[in-house]
Amino acid sequence: MTYIPTKEGTLYLSVFLDIYSRKIVGWAMGRHMRDQLVTDAFKQAYQRECPKEGLIVHTDQGSQYTGSRFQELLRQKKCQSSMSRKGNPYDNALMESFYKTLKRELINDAHFTTIEQAQLEIFKYIETYYNPKRLHSALGYQSPLEFERRNH
Score class of each variant (00 low, 15 high):
Arg104Cys: 03
Ile107Glu: 03
Ile122Tyr: 00
Ile24Arg: 03
Ile122Gly: 02
Gln47Lys: 15
Asp35Cys: 14
Asp40Lys: 08
Ser84Ile: 13
Pro5Val: 08
Ser14Phe: 00
Leu17Gly: 05
Gln117Phe: 08
Ala118Asn: 10
Lys78Asn: 13
Tyr125Phe: 04
Asp60Thr: 10
Asp18Val: 01
Phe147Cys: 01
Cys79Leu: 01
Ser82Gly: 02
Asn151Val: 05
Leu102Gln: 04
Lys52Asp: 15
Glu8Asn: 04
Arg85Cys: 04
Leu135Glu: 04
Tyr125Met: 01
Val38Thr: 15
Phe42Trp: 01
Glu96Lys: 11
Met83Ile: 12
Ser143Cys: 02
Ile19Asp: 12
Arg149Ser: 14
Gln47Gly: 11
Phe123Pro: 06
Leu17Asp: 07
Gly87Glu: 08
Arg22Asp: 09
Glu121Cys: 01
Glu72Met: 13
Ile126His: 00
Glu148Thr: 06
Glu49Tyr: 14
Gln64Cys: 07
Glu146Leu: 10
Glu121Lys: 13
Thr66Glu: 08
Ile19Trp: 13
Gln119Val: 05
Ala118Ser: 05
His32Tyr: 14
Cys50Pro: 06
Tyr125Gly: 02
Tyr90Val: 06
Gln61Gly: 13
Lys86Ser: 11
Ile126Lys: 01
Ser21Met: 01
Lys124Thr: 10
Gly30Lys: 07
Pro51Leu: 07
Lys100Asp: 09
Gly62Trp: 02
Ile19Met: 14
Gln44Ile: 12
Gly62Asn: 07
Tyr90Arg: 06
Leu102Pro: 00
Glu121Thr: 00
Gln64Phe: 05
Arg34Ile: 06
Leu73Tyr: 02
Trp27Asn: 00
His136Val: 00
Tyr65Glu: 03
Leu73Asn: 05
Thr2His: 03
Cys79Ile: 03
Phe70Pro: 00
His136Trp: 01
Asn92Arg: 06
Gly62Leu: 02
Leu106Lys: 08
Glu49Gln: 15
Gln142Arg: 12
Ser143Asp: 03
Ile24Asp: 02
Gly87Met: 12
Gln61Thr: 10
Arg75Glu: 15
Glu49Trp: 13
Ser97Ile: 05
Lys78Ser: 11
Tyr90Cys: 03
His152Asp: 12
Ser82Asn: 05
Asp35Pro: 10
Glu96Asp: 11
Ile126Arg: 00
Glu8Ile: 01
Met29Trp: 02
Leu17Met: 11
Phe16Met: 07
Phe98Thr: 00
Lys77Trp: 07
Asp35His: 13
Ile56Trp: 07
Asn131Arg: 07
Gly9Ser: 05
Lys78Arg: 11
Tyr130Phe: 08
Leu106Tyr: 06
Thr101Glu: 04
Lys77Phe: 13
Arg31Gly: 11
Leu145Ser: 12
Pro5Lys: 04
Glu116Leu: 11
Arg149Gln: 15
Gln80Leu: 12
Met29Val: 01
Ser84Asn: 11
